[in-house]
Design a protein around this nucleic acid. Structure first.
Lengths: 152, 152
DNA sequence: TTCTTTGCAAAATGTTTGCAGATAC
DNA sequence: GTATCTGCAAACATTTTGCAAAGAA
């Protein structure tokens, strides 16, 4: 249930705090919610819905989506769309952005701060508040694009 | 069929050149392909499959996907997955990035140059060459996130 | 008890595929 | 003429929804 401090950022919400949030939100702590919450809290990084479904065969997938949506609305998790592949859910507080190699699928996590200047410009000049961590960037890694690439 | 020069970048492929490419690729220039090619060439920005389907009621959607896939493999168009909804297709050479409001779905196009500094850093520090235009950024627009928002 | 949440089944997307017939070259 | 496309229908994958029954509080 606990993780080493190196894996958890200080701004992160703890497990018990998360339970409190759920209670405050007025929701009920059901078996499905508790076990999914634990799983998401424990999970190393991003998990997909089908991974969760596999680890919680007792939970219907409709419930799964509803619970994830609930957790997200309460601000406990967020989800990322990894280009093509499935969406990945993870505990909030990981301040990083996924960069996916569109050829080999390798994912490099980049600190969210790298996007800060861009986020500022987008807000000021385009009125769009970047949701860092809710999207993935697509790229080509060195192995897949040796060099000279004319990236678009 | 022609667009004002301000809308087309110099690096862009012309319509006739595109037809040549299709011929060189060995494919046949069918009615569906020709009219879709024209549409995509003419289109102001990104078009979704259902927009194309609406404008080409004679073309079956299965054909639509196949034709789009063909055009893409020949390097005439590319597509972007806009978070949830359907993918957006457009003529290659448009150097912009889509920023999608995750609440209302509105898409704001931002010049690719805005991403240049980030792209440079990603290449130098992470060995990833950003594929600008092959992904969408997720954000909240002013209407959906009035202000003071704690973006995650 | 009472109101929320779940499971199940069915629907809504968005995209792909198999196949026989149409068509470009 | 013949190999390639197309339309149609059906399959797929993913997510959403309606509703009665199960379960928190």
């Amino acid at each position: 249930m606990t993780k080493t401090s190196s894996e958890r950022s200080s701004s992160e919400i703890g497990f018990d705090e998360a339970l409190d949030r759920l209670r405050v939100a007025g929701g009920r702590i059901t078996r499905a919610r508790r076990s999914l919450l634990e799983d998401l809290y424990r999970a190393a990084g991003r998990v997909t819905v089908d991974e969760l479904a596999e680890r919680h065969p007792d939970v219907d997938s409709a419930t799964l989506y509803r619970v994830l949506s609930h957790f997200e609305s309460v601000g406990l998790i967020d989800h990322v769309h990894l280009g093509h592949g499935p969406a990945g859910y993870r505990w909030v507080g990981h301040r990083s952005v996924a960069v996916v190699c569109e050829d080999c699928g390798r994912v490099v996590d980049v600190p969210a701060d790298e996007l800060r200047p861009l986020a500022d410009r987008l807000r000021r000049h385009y009125g769009m508040r970047l949701s860092i961590g809710h999207f993935a960037l697509t790229a080509r890694c060195e192995a897949c694009a040796p060099d000279h690439s004319h990236e678009r």
